[in-house]
């Protein structure tokens, strides 16, 4: 009975959030350059990306259109690898001067003591570091023999700061699924407090590499691992917001599945395009900062994100969980949008 009312309340809450659509979280795809060449990269970044970094002033002009900013508004620097930008500290300082807080997602390769100090000085308040396994499996996925050592050092530095709200993310794949208990022990030994697990979806470079995609059984095992580990209360482990996981919903996250793309989350992509999360198909782009006012676009467009009835098609059309799932994550709709790319709930049921 309690679960019934809780779910009903949560659905109401989600609808209400879509109506209000307060912009809390703005990704800035500040570079497409990357120092690694990961096997699973969804955006096909490279050292020699053909896209130039977006000039800081261009982003700041767009940021200034957001007025008033919500209480917990923040800018999340992403890429590519944000640390490839030489002016990353200046970017952070200017974002603070323009009334926003900021954070960053990094592979940790260039995150040394000096960079750590400079980023803290520039007002960085949160950080996510990717770690995709112990040394062998991390280096395999990241395609670089030194990447684990560098990420390990970055984790130590991040952990040394009491000011940073920091977590580790792991892309779970067939090579590291058996390692999860070992990664857990490693993270505990590093005093890491928060750990988020993802799976890899078959897009970008991962589309043609079956080793990266979990079998349905492995996926269910991963959720079981998260569920069991959460009960230990030794680390804040959770499954990411990538998809609806049915009977595991209350066991693998702090709250139910809610894809906030376009509801609370927006992004400015490398070419100025305005969208929601950067990993969402480019066909969902809503405008461009070089021709549109970012905040006007946020307030007046994004209908496909805020009313997801259109996702009730393909296998979602007759799904009994649709009311709670609402078409899964928006990043799972591509091309003709006739069917969802991955149904996490189906994986559990198989």
């Amino acid at each position: 009975m309690f679960e019934y009312f809780k779910n009903k309340l949560f659905r109401r809450f989600k609808n209400n959030e879509a109506n209000i659509h307060e912009l809390n979280y703005l990704f800035w795809e500040c570079t497409m350059r990357c120092n690694l060449n990961c096997l699973h990269c969804g955006s096909d970044c490279s050292k020699n990306s053909s896209s130039d970094d977006m000039p800081l002033e261009d982003f700041l002009s767009a940021l200034d259109t957001i007025e008033p900013k919500s209480d917990n508004f923040m800018v999340v620097l992403t890429g590519g690898e944000p640390l490839m930008r030489k002016d990353i500290e200046q970017c952070g300082r200017e974002i603070r001067k323009h009334g926003a807080r900021w954070s960053m997602v990094t592979n940790g390769y260039l995150y040394d003591q000096e960079k750590h100090n400079a980023l803290l000085n520039a007002g960085m308040g949160a950080l996510t570091i990717s770690l995709d396994g112990l040394e062998e499996s991390h280096n395999w996925l990241r395609n670089n023999k030194n990447s684990f050592a560098r990420a390990d050092n970055a984790i130590s530095l991040a952990r040394s700061s009491t000011r940073l709200n920091f977590d580790v993310v792991t892309c779970v794949n067939r090579k590291n699924i058996e390692e999860l208990p070992l990664i857990y022990n490693y993270l505990l030994s590093k005093s890491v407090k928060a750990w988020r697990l993802f799976t890899i979806i078959p897009i970008g470079r991962a589309a043609n590499n079956p080793e990266l995609i979990l079998t349905d059984q492995q996926f269910t095992e991963m959720l079981g691992f998260i569920s069991r580990t959460r009960k230990l209360k030794t680390i804040d482990i959770k499954f990411s917001c990538e998809g609806y996981v049915g009977k595991f919903e209350s066991k693998v996250r702090d709250s139910g599945f809610f894809c906030r793309a376009g509801i609370n989350i927006g992004s400015v992509l490398i070419d100025g395009s305005i969208s929601a999360c950067p990993n969402i198909d480019r066909s969902f782009i809503q405008g461009n900062i070089y021709s549109d006012n970012l905040f006007e676009v946020w307030n007046k467009k994004f209908q496909m994100f805020r009313d997801r009835k259109w996702t009730k098609t393909g296998q979602c059309a007759g799904c009994k969980d649709y009311t709670d799932c609402q078409g899964n994550g928006m990043h799972l709709w591509h091309g003709d949008k006739e069917n969802v790319l991955v149904c996490h709930n189906e994986k559990i049921s198989n």
């Binding site: 809780k6 309340l9 949560f10 809450f13 809390n24 979280y25 990704f27 917990n72 923040m74 999340v76 992403t78 807080r101 900021w102 954070s103 960053m104 997602v105 007002g123 308040g125 949160a126 950080l127 996510t128 000011r163 709200n165 920091f166 977590d167 993310v169 928060a194 988020r196 993802f198 990411s240 917001c241 990538e242 702090d254 709250s255 139910g256 809610f258 906030r260 793309a261 609370n264 989350i265 999360c277 950067p278 990993n279 994550g329 990043h331």
Partner: peptide
Amino acid sequence: SVTSMVFVFQACYGTPQDMKYD
């Protein structure tokens, strides 16, 4: 309380919230 946690969220492959402790 049943929904209090949903006000502190992270995007897919985003970061945790800045706790404004500076």
